[in-house]
Design a protein around this nucleic acid. Structure first.
Length: 303
DNA sequence: AGAATTTGACCTCG
DNA sequence: CGAGGTCAAATTCT
């Protein structure tokens, strides 16, 4: 625990330092956006590292609970080592004729997930601000609803291994259990419409993409129809990079830990070392919650 | 036309 | 062998 603790402190200092750099950068209206994104990713990585240390040193779980969401971390089993690769499994089809082998022998070119971190979120919404591509659906034994499989849209262009499985577990209210598998390794891109919504059109939290409904789903001061990071210096808010903060699984960990299940944006305040989190309800009223990042924020409480 | 989803075959694992 | 996870052709959407 001693070394872990040191590492945590180190990570957090690093994260804070990077956040300060980002803050300075963003005060400059002509600041390098690419650099800003890099800094942001660095900060996110810091959080990821911190969380992974925290969760790894925590044999049991249940440091969770959020209004409508709970997180359940699962440690990877180091037992399984990957075997079948695309290309190395020529052994099987030595004469075995499958039913439809006639017109497809490119099958089997996939590997089953091995050891990667996963965590489960139970929530009334499935949309999470990340870009997912559905690649399968399956009826699960003893489950009343099918399970949907998603992978990161950047799987192919950036090799991102993040996937998630979404399963409706309740109908009234509509509740989903989402299992995230693997961290995003892709670099967050600037997207005009960062909120990718789930397939359920009834999802009340759905933030429509700009083309669909030119609504006012979000507080107007965001300046865009999308959730954004707000970099705030006292009262003057600047709209930062959209999607990048929400576009990371660890953000969900984080906000759940902070009891911010509805949060879709993050606001960094410079003068008080405060991280404020904004969220809004169905009536589009937003709420700001804040924690003192300097001393009140006690990471031990996660354990 | 290209992107996203659907769907059933195929694969791995217990 | 069955359950669950993945692939990719077909289909639908934008």
């Amino acid at each position: 625990m001693g070394t872990n603790h040191k590492r945590l402190i180190g990570e957090l200092h690093e994260g804070r330092k990077t956040a300060e750099e980002l803050q300075i950068l963003l005060q400059n209206p002509y600041g390098d956006r690419v650099l800003a994104e890099e800094l942001l990713m660095k900060i996110m990585t810091t959080f990821a590292e911190t969380l992974s240390v925290l969760t790894a040193s925590d044999g049991h779980e249940d440091h969770q609970s959020a209004a409508s969401g709970e997180v359940h971390q699962v440690k990877p089993e180091p037992s399984q080592v990957e075997h079948s690769h695309c290309g190395d499994r020529s052994s099987e089809d030595s004469g075995e004729s499958r039913k439809t082998q006639a017109f497809k022998d490119r099958r089997g070119c996939y590997k089953r997930r091995k050891t990667c971190q996963s965590w489960t979120v139970t929530s009334t919404k499935i949309e999470d601000g990340q870009a997912w591509r559905k690649y399968g659906q399956k009826i699960i034994l003893n489950a009343p609803y099918p399970r949907a499989y998603f992978r990161c849209t950047r799987k192919f262009d950036q090799g991102c291994k993040a996937t998630k499985q979404v399963q409706q577990i309740q109908d009234n209210p509509l509740t989903y259990q989402t299992t995230y598998i693997g961290e995003h390794t892709c670099r967050a891109m600037i997207k005009p419409s960062p909120m990718i919504i789930g397939s359920n059109p009834r999802d009340s939290q759905t933030v429509s993409s700009e083309s669909g409904t030119p609504h006012h789903q979000n507080p107007s001061f965001f300046g865009t129809s999308a959730p954004s990071i707000l970099i705030a210096k006292q009262e003057d808010y600047k709209v930062g990079t959209p999607s990048d903060v929400t576009d990371n699984s660890m953000w969900h960990d984080w906000k759940d830990h902070l009891d911010l299940s509805e949060t879709v944006g993050i606001c960094v305040s410079s003068n008080e070392d405060v991280v404020s989190n904004m969220h809004w309800d169905e009536d589009m009223d937003y709420v700001v919650k804040s924690i003192n990042f300097e001393e009140d924020f006690n990471f031990e409480s996660f354990l």
